[in-house]
């Protein structure tokens, strides 16, 4: 009979203790970051969207080999006069539908001091159709903007 009341007391006590935990955190300040107004600062090694620097790239294909999902494709530039391949790139395309953001291409890129393909800190990046995921950088065309076959896609979501 006695332990019947003891169990009731024990059950009641632990229920109340559980409620006190939620009561204590009821008064603690909340930790939500309200995204559009407040934004978290991304750490220095953050692997965001990839950018590409047309001038420094020597079209050595190391990044193409390093990529696990083979989403990088490029074409070396050809000197119109001598019809020989020169150490520049004519166009460079990354298919962000397949990219793993794994930084293997950046590590494989031999260009000094700043790598020609590297991660930025940009994560606000939405695309509407699959075609928009093919980001293409052309060196020959006058426009320096990275153009996709369609609308420019660098607009935040």
């Amino acid at each position: 009979m006695l332990n019947y009341f003891k169990t009731i007391y024990k059950v009641g006590k632990s229920l109340i203790q559980g409620m006190l935990v939620t009561w204590k955190s009821f008064w603690q300040p909340s930790i939500t970051v309200q995204f559009p107004d407040e934004k978290l600062i991304t750490p220095e090694r953050f692997r965001g969207a990839l950018t590409f620097d047309k001038e420094t790239c020597t079209a050595c294909n190391l990044c193409v080999k390093a990529c696990p999902t083979a989403c990088i494709s490029l074409e070396p530039a050809v000197d119109p006069a001598t019809k020989k391949r020169i150490a520049k790139v004519s166009w460079y395309q990354i298919d962000f539908g397949k990219c793993n953001y794994c930084r293997l291409c950046e590590e494989a890129c031999p260009t000094k001091p700043i790598k020609s393909v590297r991660h930025t800190h940009q994560y606000e990046w939405g695309m509407l159709e699959r075609k928009e995921m093919f980001v293409k950088w052309e060196r020959m065309s006058p426009s320096t903007e990275p153009s996709t076959s369609g609308s420019t896609n660098m607009k935040p979501i």
Partner: peptide, 13 residues
């Protein structure tokens, strides 16, 4: 709001 603040979040804002 009460459930949010009990869980350290803000609830509808």
């Amino acid at each position: 709001k009460v459930s949010a603040h009990m869980q350290n979040r803000l609830g509808p804002m």
